[in-house]
Each structure stands twice: as structure tokens, then as C-alpha cells.
Amino acid sequence: MSAFAAPVVAWASGEDDPSRPLVVLLHGRGSDETEIVGLAGHLPGEASYAAVRAPIEEGGGYAWFANRGIGRPVAESLAATMAWFRTWLDEVAPAGRPVVLAGFSGGAAFAGGLVLSDPARFAGAAILYGTLPFEDAGVPVEAGRLTGLPVFVAQGDQDHVIPAELLSRTWSYLLGASGAAPSARRDTGGHGLTQGTAVELAEWLAHRLAWLTRRGQGPVGMAPEPAGWPTLPGGTLPARTGDRPEVHFRIPQSQLTDTSPPQLQEALFARLSGLDGVDSGPSMISVPGARGLVAPDADGPDDAFLVAEVKEFAHLHPEHDGSLHVALPHDLAADAIAKGWAQSHMWAGVRLSPGFLMVYGPRDEAELDVVAGIVEASHRHAFGRLG
């Protein structure tokens, strides 16, 4: 810490506007703040943009750039540099001012370390052509840790700078077990920011900034004491066995592997469509063939619905998919993700309810009971009867 000088910061407009959310741009190896600050010109004008120079000169970028994995010396450097960065950040963005991180390459690893160390401190993160700090980095990487945090992920399918194994682990974690609401893009190309990625990043950020203006940041991470599941035996959600299925990373979000047998899908729909006060019909938000569950007389909060205007609180996807989308309160959403039953939707907390989840289709009768219990909890949420 004592070896680090005060941060060198480039502001996109020449100065900060503390009345606006802050977006911090973090450069990669061989670059500096004067290059990455130019990205701000392609991003929404509703934020204030700062680019921060890496404090360690060797290598020309953030020294924990994880192209060979992370070892103890690098982990110690990461911890010290995060503390250095947080001292600066907490001065320019005290509690109450939303902060979004956008890191490229080595800066992506640093941004990942920051959000994993303290998820609730940040309102979003863009991990661009880089890896999270895995191995011995000293930051927690467990299931559900980033629930409630919108994340934008971009990678190149011919990136030979970052090892493929690290890119794959980063992609899989952020798009599944982390609980983050993941907007993701894969480019045909290598280790460089493309125009298409810049356009999608700007769109994602515009929606997130608009959400923050309307609604504020909301909870992030695992709840210390989940309220429990009144719709499941013992009030507890068991762990799902096996790996998470493969899920399509673009809209429409759909389950691609390990899908539910058709007869179980029908049994599940029969059970759910028979819940009190529920009507069924074509979903108002999903793909053709998806069956919506609507509670016309429900009086729960808008966040309890996928489409609040028509009170659609869940829907079941067509037979080739068999997964469901539901809306749950934050603590139950995080628990469902951590136990392996669900993952966040890419629009959660960006365009739609923060508790917007995909629940994987049941593979056997025991899982049918559990999945039905999860959806029944969303039904109670719609009527304001949870907690």
C-alpha cells in the first residue's frame, strides 16, 4: 500500500459530476488510462466516466493479469491494489452513489476481483476479454455470490492472449452459478474490443443506468438468513445433483441440455395451472408455445411478476426446452441459484424484475416436487403471501 502513489485518473469530461452514477474504466496490459477513457465516448451520457491507471508499472498494466493463473505473490498484490483502489473510490463515490466497473483484459480481472470481494458495493460490472481472478487469488467464488448484480461479459472465440480454460471458467461461472444477471457476447475474433461489443455494452449500460435512476441499486449477494421455503418440506430447498445444464446465452434464454422429459413437463404444468387464482394461456413475454401462468387478482409487488401488466408470474417453455421462468424475492432467488436449481435472466434488474430466474426443468419425480415448490413460492410472492 505505501508503495502506491495517488491514483492517476482521466475523466472523460475533464472532471467528475458527482450527481451522476460513476463508471470506472480499467485498462489492460500495455495500455493506460488515456486509451481506455476513449471508450466513454461510445457509452451513455447519463454517467460520469473515470479511467484509472494501474498503480504497478511493470508489465504496463494491472499486475495480476491472470494469463498463467494466480499464485500467492499475485494474490497479495491483488489484495493490496484493491485496497488502494477502494480508498480512492470511497472518496469519489461515497455510499449511495452507484458505481459500475468496466475492465478490459487485465482490468477485467481486477474488476472481477473487486466485485467478488464486495458484491454489494457495485451496481454492475463489464468483464471484457478477460478472466476472473481464479486459483489462489484470495477472493470468494461461490454459487450465488453475485445474485442481483447485472454483468456484461464479452469474449473473442479466437482469443490467444487469455488461456481458453480461464475464459471458459469465467464464462460458465458468470452465466450460471454466480447468480449475476449476465448479458453476454461472443465475437468471431481475438483479444480486442469490437464495434459490436461497444454497441451492446452501451445498450446494456443505458438500461442499467435507467433502472438505477428509477429504482436504485437493490440487494446483491447471498442473504445472511433466507426466509425459507414455505412450499417445500421442512422449509428448506435441497441441493440439485449433477452439473448445471447448458443454457443459451442470448435472448431467448433457453435450456439446451439435460432437459425435462415431456411427461414430467405436462405433470408440472397440470399441477401449477391448478393453483388457486391461476389462469393459463400463451405467455405474454416468452417464445411461441410457452405457457403462461397468470394470477389476475394477485396484489403482490410488481417485482413478483414477469409481466406486471397482466400478472404473469411464471411460464413454462415449449417441450424441446422444458425450463421455466419465474420471479422470486432476492433471498429465495439467491438460494435457488446457490443450490443449483436456477440461474438469473439477463434482463433481471436491467429491464425486468431483479428476481427474474430461469428454473431448470425437472428430470425425475423427486425433482418435479422441488421445481413445483419453487414455482409455488413465486405464486405466493405474486399474492404477497411470502414472509
Results as ranks from 00 to 15, higher is better:
Leu132Cys: 15
Pro133Met: 03
Pro133Ile: 02
Pro133Tyr: 00
Pro133His: 13
Phe134Ser: 10
Phe134Leu: 11
Asp136Val: 11
Asp136Ser: 12
Asp136Lys: 12
Ala137Gln: 07
Ala137Ile: 09
Ala137Met: 08
Ala137Glu: 11
Gly138Leu: 04
Gly138Pro: 12
Gly138Cys: 11
Val139Thr: 13
Val139Leu: 03
Pro140Ala: 10
Pro140Gly: 06
Val141His: 09
Glu142Leu: 07
Glu142Lys: 14
Ala143Ser: 15
Gly144Leu: 06
Gly144Met: 00
Gly144Ala: 05
Gly144Pro: 14
Arg145Val: 11
Arg145Asn: 08
Arg145His: 12
Leu146Thr: 13
Thr147His: 12
Thr147Met: 06
Thr147Arg: 15
Gly148Asn: 07
Gly148His: 12
Gly148Phe: 05
Leu149Arg: 13
Pro150Cys: 07
Pro150Phe: 01
Pro150Ser: 12
Pro150Tyr: 07
Pro150Met: 08
Val151Thr: 10
Val151Phe: 04
Val151Ile: 15
Val151Asn: 04
Phe152Ile: 09
Phe152Pro: 08
Phe152Thr: 08
Phe152Leu: 08
Val153Pro: 09
Val153Glu: 07
Val153Arg: 12
Ala154Met: 00
Ala154Phe: 00
Gln155Asp: 03
Gln155Pro: 04
Gln155Tyr: 03
Gln155Gly: 00
Gly156Val: 03
Gly156Phe: 01
Gly156Ala: 00
Gly156Arg: 01
Gly156Tyr: 10
Asp157Ile: 01
Asp157Val: 08
Asp157Ser: 14
Gln158Lys: 06
Gln158Val: 05
Gln158Gly: 01
Gln158Ser: 14
Asp159His: 15
Asp159Asn: 14
Asp159Phe: 05
Asp159Pro: 13
Asp159Trp: 03
His160Asp: 05
His160Gly: 10
His160Pro: 06
Val161Asp: 05
Val161Pro: 08
Ile162Met: 05
Pro163Thr: 01
Pro163Ser: 12
Ala164Leu: 05
Ala164Ile: 09
Ala164Asn: 14
Ala164Ser: 15
Ala164Phe: 07
Glu165Gly: 13
Glu165Gln: 14
Leu166Lys: 11
Leu166Asp: 08
Leu167Arg: 02
Leu167Ala: 04
Leu167Val: 03
Leu167Asn: 02
Ser168Met: 04
Ser168Cys: 10
Ser168Ala: 15
Arg169Glu: 06
Arg169Pro: 03
Arg169His: 05
Arg169Asp: 07
Thr170Gln: 05
Thr170Gly: 04
Thr170Met: 02
Thr170Pro: 13
Thr170Cys: 03
Thr170Lys: 13
Trp171Met: 04
Trp171Val: 13
Ser172Asn: 03
Ser172Glu: 06
Ser172Phe: 00
Ser172Pro: 09
Ser172His: 15
Ser172Cys: 12
Ser172Ala: 15
Tyr173Trp: 15
Tyr173Gln: 05
Tyr173Met: 04
Leu174Asn: 00
Leu174Arg: 01
Leu174Val: 02
Leu175Tyr: 00
Leu175Arg: 13
Gly176Glu: 04
Gly176Asp: 14
Gly176Ile: 09
Ala177Asp: 08
Ala177Glu: 14
Ala177Tyr: 05
Ala177Gln: 14
Ala177Lys: 04
Ala177Arg: 14
Ser178Leu: 03
Gly179Asp: 01
Gly179Ser: 11
Ala180Val: 09
Ala181Lys: 01
Ala181Thr: 07
Ala181His: 01
Pro182Ala: 05
Ser183Tyr: 06
Ser183Glu: 14
Ser183Leu: 08
Ser183Met: 08
Ala184Trp: 00
Ala184Phe: 00
Ala184Asp: 03
Ala184His: 01
Ala184Arg: 00
Arg185Val: 03
Arg185Cys: 02
Arg185Glu: 11
Arg185Asn: 02
